[in-house]
Design a protein around this nucleic acid. Sequence first.
DNA 1: GCGACAG
DNA 2: ATCTTGTCGC
Length: 224
Amino acid sequence: MAVPALPEWDGDVAAARALQVTLAQQVSLQDELPAPLRYLAGFDVGFEDEGATTRAAAVVLDADTLQPLESQVARIPTRMPYIPGLLSFRELPALLAALDRLERQPDLVFVDGHGIAHPRGLGIAAHFGVATGLPSIGVAKKVLAGQHEPPGPTPGDRSPLRYRGRVIGTVLRSKARCLPLIVSPGHKVSMETAVAQVLRCLRGYRLPEPTRLADRLASRRDTK
DNA sequence: GCGACAG
DNA sequence: ATCTTGTCGC
């Protein structure tokens, strides 16, 4: 039987970039978090079938104990290739599918990737926030845009990430002798709150619990 | 024109 | 991201 043609990406890089500029204007860097934070969530993506399938993982944790309460995995056919700067167009659909499967709606979301620390201010965490209206924070392992001085060696030490004269992120040492993380606001969160929340979620590992747990679910070669 | 470039 | 075992260092 014929395989139904999958809706694919039109390859219009310029149009995608233009859309990012528009969406970036909708990003809010003002704190708009719910009164008592109850549920935190971590999101990450992995691939199967040599990249043909995109697998997104979502984990909801108790905001106070950081204990995982629920987790979901969503799989969808991969639509477009990885293009630096356009990551969200490739991975966001899967992340939204995983979000739909959650029973509890998170109060604050942590996404593996950048928030506003992006050439056009719309990394995947920011795009996720604007698309869902949920407060979000980006936690990346490498710099995409901007420059910075190396942060001190002690956990908690930080250094501003600057791009075109603006501070777009915070290079944070989350664990001794480990490469620092790049933290940036996604949506409805300030730079200060983004860093404070990541610090509050550290439990001895380089990655904060929400992202660490989602990471584990998204890239396990044996998730069935 | 040359290099950089999240996951 | 992904292909992959052992190995160096704290």
